[in-house]
Amino acid sequence: MSELSYDAAFLRKKAFNIRKHIITTVVNNGEGHAGPALSCADILSVLYMGIMGEDDRFILSAGHKCLALYGALVEKGVVDRSVLDTYNQLGSPVPGHPDMTKLPGVEFSTGSLGHGLPLGCGLALAAKMQNKNYKTYVLMGDGEQGEGSNWEAAAFAAQKKLDNLVAIIDENGLQINGTTKEILKPTSYEARYGSFGWAVKVVNGHSVEEIYETLSSAPFEAGRPSLIVAKTIKGKGLSFAENNVNYHHWNPDKEEADKALAELKALEKGCM
């Protein structure tokens, strides 16, 4: 691997901070989509704190992972941390799914699955048309690959050679009712997007080094949209929630809340 041009420890620390925002927000609020947000915290840390420039665009397709996005926006200094205290409350700028009309830094109102990649096609196509150099990043879940709209967009992006479009699948292998493999994943996402004409790479979605190196090499091939399949663990960072489908949506009781906060402390030491 080439000499690193970034500070991996800094990105790990930011990823930890994002996890801290996710966990403390859910503990304080009493409920929230913790598992899916924890799954993509490292990816968001690298994107926001290491990769994306001012003009780049980001769409969180799986909008229920918004706590990770809110956390990244706090760490980036776009919004104040105190905004998380209003999570899911009436009139809050940080509702259960992100709203572009309510919070600066949210590029698209998402929540309904399978919308992000098609929206990304619009942004990427507009950039090509206007000769603009920004990249469009779309973070998808693996469960949402079941939505047919993604495959309309996958074909279109390849057809139009949208190499300024970078999609990431946060592949934690779990969806609400079980594993993706047992529900609707007959073949790998690598094979599927590859056959649609995308350039695909697979990374460890919790290694900031791998994520950074891979994202910074996009587009992987001129004239092709890029896909990064990030292998992740749902609930990453909370021992009892890791790889556990029951923590997709988490309503912590007192015992779990205490345990989570204690684990946070241990995690913080680990990423120093």
């Binding site: 698209f108 098609p118 619009g122 942004l123 709209s149 309309e152 967009a153 074909a155 279109f156």
Partner: peptide, 18 residues
Amino acid sequence: MGIAEQNLMSTAAGFATC
């Protein structure tokens, strides 16, 4: 956009933000 109406609408939405 091809015979792909969901992508038609979402791509249009993307354009509108540009």
